[in-house]
Simulated scan of single mutants.
Amino acid sequence: MSMVFTLAPEPEAEAAETGRLLFAGPVEFVKGVVAMPGLPPADRVEVCFAGRSNVGKSSLINALTNRKTLARASNTPGRTQEINYFALGEERYLVDLPGYGFAEAPVAIVRKWQELLKAYLSGRQTLRRAFVLIDSRHGVKAVDDEIMTMLDKSAVTFQVVMTKLDKINKETREKNIEQVKQALQKHPAAYPEIILTSSEKGEGLETLRAVIATLA
């Protein structure tokens, strides 16, 4: 039986408030990690953000946390070469994974990063959900499919967050949402609700905050 994928509904008032309070509280950069032994203690729930280079990951993290420069945005694909940990209050980690599909990075560096990513995804017991960012202008590309397959193999539940929604018209939006739904059919680890966002317009941020805040 195929899974039915839908757009995430707006959160209930209580969940929305829980999300607002979590992200209105302290958010601090903890450390950038280049190897598994450098990870902070697995003493709290964590969520991670993964996405192709230039998908708008830094912009989304900054918009979510109401901080302009928390995550450094770079115009050079593959510039973020670390797993960056942020503390969301006392009980959550928000983890920013290196952008994948490095156009500019040397092969050896890419290989090293793929190995670290695999080790992190399969070995982090406190990881509750991965958010896979998909550029709504392009839909799912082959390199996105690869990361989703890696998440399937690691048995990590992932949820698609479509970014840059303000950059497309209604027709393209509907076509690309349909393409994403079709692409997710073959990924058993995919969570059935897709979150639509625009960092610039603030669309979908309340929903994403609520989802993160209510993950046990």
Rank of each mutant, 00 (worst) to 15 (best):
A24T: 01
K164A: 09
P11E: 05
R92I: 08
K118W: 03
Y100S: 04
L70K: 02
K170R: 15
Q179P: 08
A8N: 06
K68P: 03
Y191M: 07
P192I: 11
Q159F: 08
R44D: 03
T80E: 13
Y93L: 04
L116N: 08
T207K: 02
T69M: 07
V27M: 14
I195V: 15
L97K: 05
P40T: 04
A119S: 13
K141I: 14
S199Y: 10
E193V: 01
T18S: 06
T18C: 06
E90S: 12
P77F: 12
L205T: 01
A71E: 10
G99T: 06
L88K: 03
F23M: 03
L64T: 03
E146N: 03
T149I: 11
L165N: 14
Y93Q: 07
V27I: 15
G101Q: 04
L7V: 11
N176T: 02
K186V: 12
Y85N: 03
T6Q: 15
S58R: 09
P77H: 13
D96A: 08
G202M: 11
L133C: 08
R67T: 00
T207R: 11
L64R: 14
L215Y: 13
G89E: 08
Y93M: 04
D166V: 03
D166F: 15
K181Q: 14
Q182E: 04
L165P: 00
F5Q: 00
V33P: 01
L21H: 11
L97M: 12
P77K: 12
L7N: 05
L116T: 03
R124Y: 10
K170E: 09
V55I: 13
S199Q: 08
H138W: 15
A71W: 10
W113E: 00
D135E: 05
I168Q: 12
E171W: 02
D135G: 07
Y85R: 02
E171Y: 08
M148D: 00
P77C: 09
V211L: 01
V211T: 01
L184Y: 10
I177Y: 13
A216C: 09
A15Q: 13
V34F: 08
E91Y: 04
K186T: 13
S136Q: 12
D43Y: 13
A24W: 04
E203N: 11
I134N: 04
H138A: 15
W113C: 10
I61D: 09
S198M: 09
K68A: 05
N54H: 09
F5N: 03
T126S: 15
N84Y: 11
W113G: 01
Q179D: 13
E82M: 05
V107P: 00
V156K: 09
N54M: 14
E115I: 00
S53C: 11
V110E: 07
